[in-house]
């Protein structure tokens, strides 16, 4: 369901704000599945939902709009990749920066394996072709990230599903939502000259989508 509302007077380029809404029941399996012998809730407070929200692993792509040349950075902080998915353009040089106090051994699909990245170190790699590339730390198996290479402008939602595109040209555009190797949702939007907000109701995430990546 697409809701468009004109929030500002028409302009040549206006921001696009959006919200991704998850379905009532969502299957979002963590990419790292290992666990210990026991896992049970405490008997004092209710447990909280997982920190890893599925929307943190999604990318909203605005087809036909080219992003500006901003050097992308994938940080390794608190024993995880931040952001979990990093959208870049083909040919962008991605910097992998270790902000932890421990060693990380970086594995990038189709690029390198076991590259040592010490605390405070940085590794740069260029992704010439579009596609999704998995980034792992072989030292900490729970550290799994994605570099999503696309020629279009892409935005990563926050934990609440909110995303934003600045300076979207007026006119018709196609908006797609990518998740773990495939596009979950595609819709056409018409941008005016004012700030535009939209809300996207995502379809159920099937296990096929989970395992596609």
């Amino acid at each position: 369901m697409l809701v468009l509302s004109a929030l500002a007077p028409p302009a040549e380029a206006a921001p696009l704000l959006g919200m991704l809404k998850l379905p009532a029941k969502i299957v979002h399996k963590p990419r790292y599945k290992a666990k210990g012998f026991w896992k049970f809730p405490n008997n004092v407070l209710n447990t909280l939902p997982p920190l890893a929200d599925a929307r943190r692993s999604m990318v909203v792509v605005l087809v036909g709009t080219h992003a500006k040349g901003i050097a992308p950075v994938l940080r390794m902080v608190d024993a995880r990749f931040d952001p979990p998915v990093l959208p870049v353009k083909p040919g962008d040089a991605v910097s992998f920066v270790n902000m932890d106090r421990q060693l990380h051994l970086l594995d990038v699909t189709s690029a390198f394996n076991g590259k040592r990245v010490g605390p405070g170190d940085k590794v740069v790699h260029t992704f010439p072709k579009k596609g999704s590339y998995t980034v792992k730390c072989s030292e900490l198996p729970h550290m799994i990230g994605t570099v999503f290479v696309t020629p279009n402008v892409a935005a990563v939602p926050n934990g609440k599903g909110e995303f934003r595109f600045d300076n979207v040209d007026a006119g018709s555009h196609t908006l797609r939502v990518w998740y773990r190797g495939r596009y979950l949702h595609t819709q056409s939007i018409t941008m005016g000259k004012r700030k535009t907000s939209l809300e996207i109701q995502l379809p159920p995430i099937t296990p096929a989508a989970e395992s596609k990546e």
Binding site: K39, P50, L51, D78, A79, L140
Partner: peptide
């Protein structure tokens, strides 16, 4: 931080685990 460790993140969500 160590929130990337599943055991830490799960404990912060109220779980007791190993």
């Amino acid at each position: 931080g160590l929130i990337g460790y599943p055991v830490i993140s799960q404990a912060l969500r109220g779980y007791q685990l190993d």
